[in-house]
Amino acid sequence: MSNTDIIIGEVVGTALLILLGGGVCAAVTLKKSKAQNAGWLAITFGWGFAVLTAAYVSAGVSGAHLNPAVTIGLAVTGGTDWDQVPLYIGSQMVGAMIGAFLVWVAYYGQFQAHMADLAGQPEPAEGPDDAKAGPVLGIFSTGPEVRNAAMNLATEVIGTFVLLIAILTQGLNGSGEGLGTLGVLITALVVVSIGLSLGGPTGYAINPARDLGPRIVHALLPLKHKGRSDWGYAWVPVVGPVVGAVLAGLLYNVAFA
């Protein structure tokens, strides 16, 4: 596939992924949203359907990686050329930032109402745990329930490993065709399963672009009282998925190839 195909497919697909995935987080979180407090099941299925939609749209164009961890895992197994990896990842990051911005646009009124209730309250003081994250950061990126770098990293490694080994064993690498219709559905269901089973500790980023791109947008948006973007944690949902993807690729090469 051409560089243009990669750029278009990954930018559009990742933007849709974050728009719909971040959108369900906004719907559950923000005041004046009809879905406020809908809960974890709504979030996990919302993200699963986001993957389904985004991958279906972009599969025939770029192979629907939509995730630097997927790109790296496929490169480890030989399904993606290493010289294409930077183009894939750069396109995914751009798409993720566009998607996060569109979440803010779609829920602008709800953001305003939510933030209005925070007016007059003091900014959180420097300190551990919750004080490091702003009140709407969870709409844009992930964060741990128990802040322990080693444990949080392990959770992201394990979750991404499950995702990648499920994708790789569909026989996607080396096919040059990306996700087929059934593969898109299987991958979406795997994401739901990861969210339900492994998402509780960290919010299951399992995708560096999904977390880092929207976190940058959170930092840049003109949101009063938005609080911190928790940059001290930001490396975990980047490094963890990359390590998980490499491990899954190596296991695939040894046991399944």
Rank of each mutant, 00 (worst) to 15 (best):
C25A: 08
R210V: 02
P124G: 01
V103D: 01
F49L: 00
P122D: 09
A205R: 04
F140Q: 01
I216D: 00
I186D: 00
Q112C: 15
I167V: 13
V243M: 04
I206C: 06
G78S: 01
A205V: 05
E10A: 06
V105W: 08
G95V: 03
V11E: 05
T4N: 14
Y88F: 15
L212V: 07
I167K: 04
G23M: 07
V190N: 04
S33Q: 13
I89V: 15
E123W: 09
E145C: 06
P128K: 12
M115A: 12
L223W: 15
T53N: 00
G159A: 15
L223T: 13
Q84D: 11
S229V: 13
W82I: 13
L164P: 01
A166C: 14
T155R: 02
L185M: 12
L66D: 03
W231G: 08
K132R: 11
G78K: 03
G244N: 08
T187S: 09
T71K: 02
Q84E: 11
G63T: 09
D230M: 10
G90H: 09
Y56P: 13
L16V: 10
P237G: 04
G9L: 06
T14C: 00
G9C: 10
A150W: 08
G22H: 06
G13R: 00
F101I: 11
R228F: 14
G183K: 01
F101Y: 13
W104T: 03
Q112F: 15
V70R: 03
A42T: 12
A50S: 13
Q92Y: 08
Y56L: 12
G90P: 05
I165L: 10
G240P: 03
